[in-house]
Every structure is written in C-alpha cells, then in structure tokens.
Nucleic acid binder design. Structure first.
Lengths: 262, 262
DNA sequence: TAGTGGTCTAGACCACTTC
DNA sequence: AAGTGGTCTAGACCACTAA
C-alpha cells in the first residue's frame, strides 16, 4: 500500500499526462483538496512537492500550482560546431544552432565575464599545465529570452589568446564569429574535439542561476578542443538543465586490429 | 532565511563532505536530533529526506540513516565497441569494458528476455519500419554483483536475426562474442553508430529495478547501429542510473564547406 | 486585506528490522 | 519487545502576491 501522498500524486500525475489538466492550468488549491477529504494539509502538500520534483508542476506562493509546459528537448549535434558557420560566415556557433532550430537570438541572451584565474584541477589536466597555472576563464550564461538554459566557461592558455578579442571583457559573443574564429585568426584552427558528459545534482547556486525546477539535475559537459597537431586550445565546462537538452554523436565502430581509424 | 530543515540539511551535508561523517557511517537518529533541539520530528525528517534526494545518504526503516559510498563514475567511451574484442576474441563488448576498468564479471550479472513485439514509435522510426511492425526485443538488466547498473533493450528486424543465437532466450550474453558477433556471422558487419542521450525522471518501475536513490534521475541512451551501406541492424535503448556513468566522444570538427568528412 | 503555498509542532500510529 | 524511519493529523503561523 503506497502512502496516501503518493497515491494522490499519482492520480494527479495521471490526469496531467492525460491532458485533463493542461499545461498552464491551475491545479486545485491545497486547501480545496483538504476540504475534499484528500488528507491533511501536510499530506496534500507532500503530494504537490512530489509532483514538483517530478517536473510536472510549478508552485509559487500567492499564485498557486500550475502545470508546467514541457519545453521540447533542444538537440545538440556536432553540426553546431561546423567550421563554415563561424569561419566563412559571421555567425557564432551557438547562434547558428538557434537559427537551425527556429529560435530567435536576442541581444542580452548571453552575458560573459573574462578573468585570469588559477586553473582548477580538471582544467590544468586538460591543458597539460601544472596545478595552479594561470589561465583565462571566459564564463557565459546563455539564455533564451528570460529562460537561462546553460552556463559555459571556456579556459584558454594565456599565450593563445592574449591580445585577442577573447580577452576583451565586453558582454556578448567574442566578436564576429565567436571564440573559434578568434583562435582561427590567431593561427590556431580547431580540428577535433573530445566531449565528456555526466549528470549530477546541482549546487544551490546553479539551481538559482538556471532557474531549475525542484529536484532537477544538471548535465555537466567537458569539451576539449584540439588543433590538428593535438594542441589543446580550449577546455570548456558547460552546466545544462538536464531536462532541456539531448546530445547526439555519430561515430565509426573502432577496430583496433586495423591500421588506424580515428 | 532558509527554512530550518534546509539549514539542518546543509550543516549535515557539509559534515559529510568534510569527512566528519564517513561513508558507511550512521547519521544521528532522527529522535536524537529532536531531543537535541534541532526541531520536531517532521522537520528533522524533511532534512534527512533532502539529503537522500541529494544522493548523500540512504535511509531504511529499522536500520537508520547511513552515508552513501560515492561509487566512482563508470566512463563509457566508444572503445567499448571495438571490433577486435567481439570479432577476434570471444569477449562481449560490455565484459571487455569491465576488464578494462578492473571490475569482475560474474555469471548472473546479466539477465535477458527475448520476445517478438510491436515496434514502439521510436523503434519503428529508427528502423524505418511502419508503426506497429513486428521486431525482436532483447531486454537485459545489467548488474555488477548485487547492484543493477542499467537496462539495455535491443530491437532487431526479424529478417536479420531469425535463426540466430540472438533469438535464443537463454539468459546471459547472446553466446560467444555477443549480439554484434551474431550479426557479423549472419553477414551484417556493423560499421558506424549514432548515440543520443538525454536525462529524465525515472518511472517508478525503473526506480525499483535500478535501485535508484530517492530523487535520482536516469539517462536514456538511444543507439542506432548501421552497416557500411547504412542499413540499420540494431536500435537499442539503455536506461542508466544518472549518477553512475559518464560518456565520452571524440569527433572531428565538421566542415560543410569541404568535400565530405564524416 | 484576502488568498496562496510553505514551515513547524506535538503527538499518534504504522512498517520494518534486529534481538 | 524495542528501536528505527515513515506517515498522518490538526492547527498555528510565516512569506509572498494580487487587488
């Protein structure tokens, strides 16, 4: 026998999934369900909290509890890094991605700060630097309108970027073509990448910054960018609201018995 | 001012992270903290529930609340599909991966059931079949010892696998070399793959099956496997406990202005 | 000011484990 | 039987929003 709050949450969840409660619609107020005999206020509240943790509803004081719209997953494929976009055109990779997915870009959708910091361990390792070496950190918070979608912090070796637009702390993408274009102009053409992904519980700062739903996880992405001679020119850490993104990769099945392959 | 239960949870979390409460160690009993003036039973319980949702502790009736061991992330790279492993040797891809990561494989670490089912929409789409067409589904639950790690369900077109060991409903890997070897022997050598990943809230069935911590998310992996002539020979869906895995991909930066690239 | 969700208490009782 | 975490209640009070 499931607890009472679990049963109540399940029946409400079923009604939401069936469309009986549509996205944006108000759920019954807690006190209404109490009077309807669904349990005490704490019990009904526990059910609502569970629904919130499951991402189905959003509650706020004074307003009430409404069914959340399920924003479609944003699909991220490697095509978002296409050289043609940032080398030949004047788009920034992530803006090109917006265009492809039919979303508008507005000024202010990206904020950034640039600073010289001591490399955290993962950064030092990726760049092959000793612990504590100085690197430039370019931290962005990317939004779509009012909704923050992810943070992205790029780390560069000073000798690669000093004197370039990357180090210019103006908000917005790093000028025409973005960071990859700046590296290209400086003689570092990016060639291949490694991406690592894992999910984790957000810190409370991240939960606020990304406006995460209660209980929502984040996906952390580590991107290492190499030139053709295997020099690491950028190591970036992204933190994404887990419910808003999907990643896609294509690759050949490796065959270590053959000559090389990638 | 954060709520009392949040403050209590934060101080306990800090003590756990600092090592003051070591993995495996018991946290103070709820009633002890009540007597110590940390609040009522409900308040302390709310704090413990938050710690559980954050993956730091595990509670069970009769036992108490203990600090969870943080099992290291299992890293999944494309090398786990190396042809040399399943074609030339007699290993199964995932067992080879265990060896590489120093974990033992025991019989019973994988159970499977095979059945002919109507293709769910995503499966039909991946295989290019009409909705509702029949496909073979091979569902596995993979464990490491007592701990389930993920489910993996492969879908095959009947004409590719009928009469092979894949359709033989014996528990354990599909004979010597596993599913890819069987396809290889049947004349379908796998060549390239597409993997899609996204995170979501588990169903209650999945939470039980994978023994997920309260509030833990899952990562769903969709793998489409192609032969060299782009025939889809396998579409697989994996459901992984989000806290236990990391994925890694290497790729060339695409250049649509060039001849081809992958 | 009225109405919403959120917190907190004190205590009863339940479910499960261990002795 | 004793001790653990989990559920539930009734009610007081707080924090926030809107009119």
């Amino acid at each position: 026998m499931a607890p009472k709050w679990r049963e109540l949450a399940d029946t409400l969840a079923a009604r939401i999934r069936s469309g009986e409660y549509a996205p944006g619609q108000q759920l019954p107020h807690i006190r209404e369900l109490v009077e309807a005999g669904e349990g005490s206020k704490s019990t009904v509240h526990a059910a609502y909290k569970a629904l919130e943790a499951e991402g189905l509803v959003a509650s706020s004081r004074g307003h009430g509890t409404v069914v959340r719209q399920q924003t479609p997953l944003k699909r991220l494929g490697v095509a978002r890094y296409d050289k043609a976009k940032w080398r030949d055109g004047d788009q920034v990779a992530f803006i090109a991605d917006r265009v492809a997915t039919g979303r508008a870009y507005r000024r202010g959708d990206q904020t950034q700060t640039v600073s010289l910091v001591e490399a955290p361990p993962a950064v030092a390792e990726a760049h092959g630097l000793p612990a504590g070496a100085d690197v430039y950190a370019r931290a962005r918070l990317v939004k779509e309108g009012d909704q923050p979608t992810h943070t992205l912090t790029s780390y560069y070796r000073p000798e690669h970027v000093e004197g370039t637009r990357i180090v210019d702390p103006t908000p917005g993408p790093a000028g025409r073509g973005g960071g990859f274009r700046v590296l290209y102009d400086a003689g570092y053409e990016i060639d291949h990448m490694k991406e690592q992904l894992f999910a984790r519980v957000p810190t409370s700062d991240e939960a606020k910054l990304l406006q995460l739903a209660a209980g929502e996880w984040v996906v952390e992405l580590h991107r290492t960018t190499f030139t053709a001679d295997d020099t690491v020119v950028e190591f970036a850490v992204g933190v994404h609201a887990a419910s808003r993104f999907a990643w896609e990769y294509d690759f050949k099945v490796p065959d270590s018995a053959e000559g090389s392959a990638q």
